[in-house]
Simulated scan of single mutants.
Amino acid sequence: MRHELVAVADASDWAAFHAIRRVELFEAKGRFGIYNDQHPDDYADFAHPLLLKVDGRAVGTVRIDLLGQGRAAIRLVAITATEQGRGLGTVMEALAAERARALGVSELVVNSAAEAAGFYEKTGWTRYDWDPAELVNIASACIQMRKLL
């Protein structure tokens, strides 16, 4: 299997990127009709939307947001339900950390869903309150974490 984390660039990648996030992070959690595929943060200069592909097939998403001073947040991390439990989250996390390093990042932060905190801890993240102002709306129950690169 060939794993690659690619920058979302063309219309088909954007469609896959939004479909995975909408289904896995919103609809699978009962949040219908609220996903915004035109959210300005996805297209901002600080944002690096990425798509995990396995043998050319889109199976996961992550966005790296540069926060400045060597820090970046990873956002809206998802693996398709059919591919979960196969180690692809670990692959994507490692590839995202590698991409962040290439962007000059030395510290990654995340607002982790409670059910994902164990995954992050297994991949080297620690609980760390990095910005309580982030914990609003859909992130209100998240656990803040960081990973030094």
Rank of each mutant, 00 (worst) to 15 (best):
A19F: 06
A19S: 11
I20L: 02
R21G: 06
R21T: 04
R22M: 08
R22S: 12
R22C: 12
V23Q: 14
V23I: 12
L25I: 10
L25Y: 09
F26C: 10
F26D: 06
E27S: 10
E27D: 11
A28R: 13
A28L: 13
A28E: 14
G30P: 03
G30S: 07
G30H: 07
G30D: 03
G30N: 06
R31I: 12
R31Q: 14
R31N: 13
F32V: 13
F32R: 12
G33R: 10
G33M: 13
I34E: 13
I34D: 09
Y35Q: 09
Y35W: 12
N36W: 05
N36I: 10
N36S: 11
N36P: 08
N36Y: 07
D37P: 11
D37Q: 15
D37T: 12
D37I: 07
Q38C: 14
Q38A: 13
Q38V: 15
Q38M: 14
P40T: 07
D42R: 02
D42A: 07
Y43M: 12
Y43D: 05
Y43W: 15
Y43C: 08
Y43P: 07
A44K: 14
F46E: 10
A47F: 06
H48V: 14
H48T: 13
H48I: 08
P49N: 05
P49V: 03
L50C: 06
L51T: 02
L51N: 02
L52E: 02
K53N: 01
K53S: 04
K53M: 04
R57F: 05
R57Y: 06
A58V: 01
V59T: 04
V59L: 05
V59N: 00
G60F: 07
G60K: 03
T61E: 04
V62Q: 04
V62I: 13
V62N: 00
V62W: 01
V62E: 01
R63P: 00
I64Q: 00
I64F: 01
I64Y: 02
I64S: 01
I64R: 00
D65Q: 15
D65R: 14
L66R: 06
L67Q: 11
G68D: 14
G68H: 14
Q69M: 10
Q69A: 15
G70E: 10
R71H: 12
R71G: 03
A72I: 02
A72C: 06
A72P: 03
A72E: 02
A73T: 01
A73F: 01
I74D: 00
I74N: 04
I74H: 01
R75Q: 09
V77R: 00
V77P: 00
I79K: 01
I79C: 02
T80R: 13
A81V: 09
A81D: 09
T82P: 08
Q84F: 07
G85V: 12
G85H: 08
G85F: 05
G87W: 02
T90N: 08
T90I: 11
T90A: 14
V91F: 04
V91T: 09
M92Q: 04
M92E: 00
M92S: 07
E93L: 15
E93C: 12
A94P: 03
A94K: 09
L95F: 05
L95G: 04
A96Y: 00
A96Q: 02
A97M: 07
E98I: 09
R99S: 06
A100Y: 02
